[in-house]
């Protein structure tokens, strides 16, 4: 079953726990700049938006990699990065539209989210559910329900009827 990390920026409080636990899990140290997921804060409106690899179907990073270190696994839904093949040319980091690929200057390689082998740590520790790990097939249905809730609220308000 293909699962994806669903991000809801409205729920993100900018706490950065995802950065702490990701870098600690993947690198054994706390360092937000080495976290695969990073939160971008937009001052002064106090808006926080988590950014992580979108595991694109038609990934620009796969297309640009000269040594085939990036590839897509159909069943896991993940874009896989092979560290052994990686030559650190950084083309993928440059071409990613989300800036979701990081550069590790000491290891001389890039790094990206690998969904922690199916149980993403960031999702586990996110207290507000700004990050959720959901099945790709049900994702749009969830969003539909969320989207129409605005209409059902409107209906309730105008007619006094419950939308149930």
């Amino acid at each position: 079953m293909e699962k994806v990390i669903l991000i809801d920026p409205e729920k993100c409080t900018g706490c950065r726990i995802c950065e702490i636990v990701c870098s600690l899990t993947k690198e054994g140290v706390i360092n937000p700049t080495r976290s695969r997921i990073q939160v971008v804060k937009v001052d002064p409106v106090s808006l926080s938006i988590p950014v992580v690899c979108q595991q694109c179907y038609d990934a620009p990073c796969i297309a640009v990699c000269p040594v085939g270190a990036l590839s897509r696994h159909g069943t896991t839904g993940m874009v896989n990065h092979d560290r052994d093949l990686c030559i650190g040319c950084k083309s993928c980091a440059a071409v990613c539209p989300f800036g979701a690929i990081g550069i590790d200057t000491s290891a001389e390689k890039v790094f990206k989210c690998d969904l922690c082998g199916g149980e993403p740590t960031c999702v586990k520790f996110c207290e507000t559910k700004a990050l959720e790990f959901v099945e790709a097939s049900t994702l749009s249905l969830r969003q539909k329900r969320k989207g129409i809730s605005k209409y059902t609220e409107l209906l309730q308000r105008d007619t006094g009827q419950s939308a149930a």
Partner: peptide
């Protein structure tokens, strides 16, 4: 700052942190 902060026992730390949360 972009330097690492080391943690002595990362696995145990994360596990206990989870319990505290």
């Amino acid at each position: 700052g972009t330097l690492d902060i080391g943690v002595k026992y990362p696995r145990e730390a994360l596990e206990y942190y989870w319990q505290m949360q």
